[in-house]
């Protein structure tokens, strides 16, 4: 028996919008810790890891660990039928091949339930160890989105370099080149507008802009984004989900032949 009641149902809608273009099918895992997902894109270049902690739900009942395979496009179709202010409850029964999404309007005058077929998915989980990163950049998520979008009109890849000067995003394409440098800036009105650069050592890595642009679909989930870089690891692009957890995207770098 599974019953998860999320008062801020729009969070789940936003999570689906952030993941459905990257991953087609995924197993949602439910345990005492929370509602989570780990899935790679079809080319095994990018990975999404989601955690919505159990404490963030108004009601969280998960009698035993359960994994539910869902087609994210179909799940998105169903969640789009929920209003932005609706409370969403996810319900499942042991051994059932369906999951039910219940939507309640804020004043309880409309209650809908949508039953979706589950699917068997052979998921490949990767072990992601805790790591020390060479540099961690925290910046407004809208700024990161803007940079990725702007650069992708010039080139296909971006070199992200962190030095003590700041973080530089560079691209080149047929029409020319572009460089955007963001310096640390803590003198802002609100903390989420700050750009904070923690650098243990300089680092420079190349990534496909197509994936970074896909990650920025999570921008509505958080005012700020954290980009963690290490020369030996995939980049981590993390959006914190207030009071609940996070959505993290991992992207393997381009490697010089």
């Amino acid at each position: 028996m599974l019953e998860l009641r999320l008062v801020q149902g729009s969070l789940l809608k936003k999570v689906l919008e952030a993941t459905k273009d990257l991953v087609t099918d995924a197993n949602f895992d439910c345990s005492a810790t929370g509602f989570s997902l780990q899935a790679m894109d079809s080319s095994h270049v990018a990975l999404v890891a989601l955690l919505l902690r159990s404490e963030g739900f108004e009601h969280y009942r998960c009698d035993r660990n359960i994994s539910m395979g869902m087609n994210l496009n179909n799940m998105s179709k169903m969640l789009k039928c929920a209003g932005n202010d609706d409370i969403i409850t996810i319900k499942g029964d042991d051994g059932s091949d369906t999951v039910t999404f219940m939507f309640e309007s804020p004043n309880q005058d409309k209650i809908s339930d949508f039953e979706m077929k589950l699917m068997d998915i052979d998921s490949e989980h990767l072990g992601i160890p805790e790591a020390e990163y060479h540099a961690i950049v925290k910046m407004p998520s809208s700024e990161f989105q803007r940079i990725c979008k702007d650069l992708s009109s010039i080139g296909d890849t971006v070199v992200i370099s962190v030095t003590k000067e700041g973080v530089k995003f560079s691209t080149r394409g047929d029409i020319g080149t572009a460089n955007i440098v963001c310096r640390q800036n803590k003198t802002v009105d609100k903390p989420e507008e700050a750009t904070i650069i923690e650098m243990n050592e300089p680092v420079s890595l190349t990534f496909a802009l197509r994936y970074l642009n896909s990650f920025t679909k999570a921008t509505p989930l958080s005012e700020s984004v954290t980009v963690s870089l290490s020369s030996e690891l995939p980049v981590v692009v993390e959006y914190k989900i207030a009071d609940m957890g996070y959505i993290r995207f991992y992207l393997a770098p381009k490697i010089e032949d």
Binding site: H44, P129, A208, L233
Partner: peptide, 14 residues
Amino acid sequence: KASQGRLESFFKPV
């Protein structure tokens, strides 16, 4: 020319 890395080169399956 740079080639695209794969996640399995960095993380092991569990």
